[in-house]
Design a protein around this nucleic acid. Structure first.
Length: 456
RNA sequence: GUGAUUGUAGUUCAGUUGGUUAGAACGCCUGAUUGUGGUUCAGGAGGUCGCGGGUUCGAGUCCCGUCUUUCACCCCA
């Protein structure tokens, strides 16, 4: 009675090679977060469903993984609940869910611990999140987010620092061709006002976000379908064809949005962020003001970020923004937050596709001890301890086996050195050290071996 | 959630209009080499053809369902 093992849809194992690479990405991100003064935080895999629902829009609620109540989960429900559909049934059989992102649990944490937290509070959080989405390349049902957020300050230095952190991480990961897109929610609102489509604002945003993907014509088509007036669409066209440097775009936006308070505010904030970046001496060319960027509309209220790696068919690898009202839903108002998230799984896919992993060394076993019988193996254990005491990653072949097999093991595992212990070596105390790369073998004392390996 | 698409050995893939015993490469195991891996040579093991039903004298091949993969939409990291 054996069953064919399988994995749930959209979930993956990570083997040793993948783990080495993932850790390389994570370590890079962690170090940068820490350098900017962020402190670690973890929250549980599960939250109360009441914490999660309603925070991500209707779409988001559908993508939440709900967890069945423990024990007799039907005991609280009735036939009436069942008959009135899955929605009313759900609240009776499930009160917990897997977290969907790290921002909402973070907001929950901040509210619950508001009296103990020193504001502004900077935290980073690296954990898996779950979405019941239909999997695709770069889209998984379980994936890691690496968030850094600041709550309790309105300072636009935070926004500038987000740009700095993204740039530093991408530079260290050896990405060269990528764009950090930045926009402002207030600019989007300003655009809606300028073209007289405030009531259709969210339809407008969803459509213009697709501009780089489907082009101006199709966006306009979609807007008309979504019920916008022809005059609004016509008024929008010049807004979408804004080109040039950051300063040039700002200038054009100022002209178009000078009647909108909201638009003016957005422009001013982006200018300030840009000024902060100047003060930092930031000169990176990968940042770009993109007035068609419209993401995270359900809670972002200020600046919006998104990072894409060019020439790779994967969506955004990082995103974020400022949200004024997030802790408000948990009863703490007037606390602004700004943050962003790296999608490590997508970053991994990008690095792999661009062949940027070559410099990641698999830092595993350095020495394997091979032997002939019980006696030489036992002697090998004392050698093994000496190697490990010297800080050398080492192991002994655990079974009695032919040398051929033991050497084959070292070869396949990529172990650079082997020490062979036979009766001769035991008697003389001079062990056979073999360099697996060039095949050279010499007889050395354990001290000489340690010096040779650690000294290199 | 809507519409497509994929599934054959450990892996990557062949498999003709439905026809006898489902193949290859790589990998794996054994030996050539009883104190030595990566090369070479000889031999060997390994498959409920995703799963369940149906059509047929006969199904890896055709039909239906289901799961899985990939892709577009939606949305997102």
């Amino acid at each position: 009675m054996s069953q064919k093992p399988s994995l749930p849809k959209g979930m993956r194992d990570f083997g040793p090679l993948q783990m080495a690479r993932r850790n390389y990405i994570l370590d890079t991100i962690k170090k940068v977060f820490q350098k900017f003064g962020f402190m670690p935080l973890e929250t549980p895999a599960m939250e109360n469903l009441s914490t999660l629902t309603g925070k991500y829009g209707d779409e988001g609620d559908q993508l939440l993984f709900k967890v069945l109540n423990s024990g007799d989960f039907l005991s609280k429900s009735s036939v009436t609940d069942f008959e009135s559909g899955s929605k009313s049934m759900l609240s009776k059989v499930s009160e917990k869910g897997l977290k969907y992102d790290l921002t909402v649990p973070f907001a929950r944490y901040v509210v619950m611990n508001q009296n103990d937290i020193t504001f502004p509070f900077k935290r980073y959080q690296i954990q898996p999140v779950w979405r019941a989405d239909r999997p695709q390349r770069g889209r998984y049902r379980e994936f890691y987010q690496c968030d850094a957020d600041v709550v309790g300050t309105d300072s636009l230095i935070c926004e500038a620092e987000i740009v700095l952190m993204i740039t530093e991480v991408f530079e260290q990961l050896k990405f060269t061709d990528y764009s950090i897109k930045i926009n402002h929610r207030a600019i989007l609102t300003g655009m809606a006002e300028a073209i007289g489509a405030e009531d259709k604002a969210s339809d407008l945003f969803v459509a213009i976000d697709k501009l780089d993907k489907i082009g101006l014509e199709k966006v306009c088509e979609e807007l008309l379908q979504r019920g916008l007036d022809q005059s609004s669409v016509d008024a929008l066209k010049p807004l979408l064809s804004i080109e040039g440097s950051f300063e040039q775009k700002i200038e054009q936006l100022t002209q178009h949005l000078n009647n909108s308070e909201s638009g003016k505010k957005g422009i001013e904030e982006l200018q300030q962020i840009n000024a902060h970046l100047d003060s930092f001496g930031f000169t990176d060319k990968n940042i770009e003001l993109d007035t068609t960027l419209a993401r995270g509309l359900s809670y972002y209220t200020g600046a919006i970020f998104e990072v894409k790696v060019n020439n790779v068919s994967i969506g955004s690898v990082s995103g974020g923004g400022r949200y004024d009202n997030l802790t408000g839903v948990f009863g703490l108002s007037g606390t602004s937050g700004v943050g962003f998230s790296f999608g490590i799984d997508r970053i991994y896919d990008c690095l792999e596709e661009l062949n940027l992993f070559e410099e990641v060394m698999l830092n595993f076993t350095e020495v394997l001890i091979t032997h002939f019988d019980e006696q030489t193996q036992r002697y090998g254990l004392s050698i093994l301890k000496a190697l490990r005491d010297a800080g050398i990653k080492s192991e002994i072949y655990p079974d009695q086996a032919k040398l051929k097999k033991q050497f084959g093991y070292a070869d396949k595992k990529g172990i650079p050195y082997t020490i062979t212990i036979g009766s001769e070596e035991m008697n003389s105390g001079l062990l056979s050290l073999k360099n697996m790369a060039d095949g050279q073998q010499e007889k050395l004392s354990i001290q000489q071996i340690i010096t040779k390996i650690t000294g290199q």
